[in-house]
Computed example of a mutant assay.
Amino acid sequence: MSSPFADVTEVRNALDRHDHLVDEGLATAVFLALTLEQPLLLEGEPGVGKTATAKALASALNTPLIRLQCYEGLTANEALYEWNYQRQLLAIRLAETGGATMSEADLFTERFLQERPVLKALRHRGPAAPVLLIDEIDRADDEFEALLFEFLGEGAITIPELGTFTAERKPVVVLTSNRSRELHDALRRRCLYHWIAFPAPEQAAEILRRRVPSASEPLIGSVTQFIAAARGLELDKAPGMAESIDWLAALSALGAADLVRPDVIRTLGAVAKTPDDVSAVAEALDTLLEGTP
Rank of each mutant, 00 (worst) to 15 (best):
L122P: 02
V118D: 03
T274P: 03
A33D: 04
T101F: 03
L147I: 08
L147V: 14
T9D: 14
L162D: 06
L147A: 13
I157D: 01
A95K: 03
A284E: 06
L57A: 01
Q203M: 11
D246E: 04
S59Q: 13
P262T: 02
E43H: 03
F144W: 02
E10A: 09
V212F: 07
L285I: 14
K237C: 06
G25K: 08
L162F: 10
L41Y: 14
G99V: 09
E136L: 08
N62H: 11
G221D: 07
V118R: 01
A121E: 02
A230T: 13
S214W: 06
E82K: 15
L34N: 05
V223S: 07
A60I: 12
E161P: 12
D135P: 13
S216Q: 11
S59T: 07
A58D: 05
R17N: 09
L254S: 15
G240H: 01
E182Y: 04
G49C: 06
L268Q: 06
E243C: 03
V278G: 00
S2R: 11
R12C: 01
E243T: 07
R87Q: 11
G255D: 09
V212L: 04
E24M: 02
L42D: 01
L208W: 08
C70V: 11
A52M: 09
H20W: 12
L40S: 05
E143W: 15
M241I: 11
T287Y: 09
C191F: 09
N62L: 07
L57I: 14
T166P: 07
A204P: 02
D246M: 01
G49R: 01
L268S: 10
H194R: 13
A6E: 13
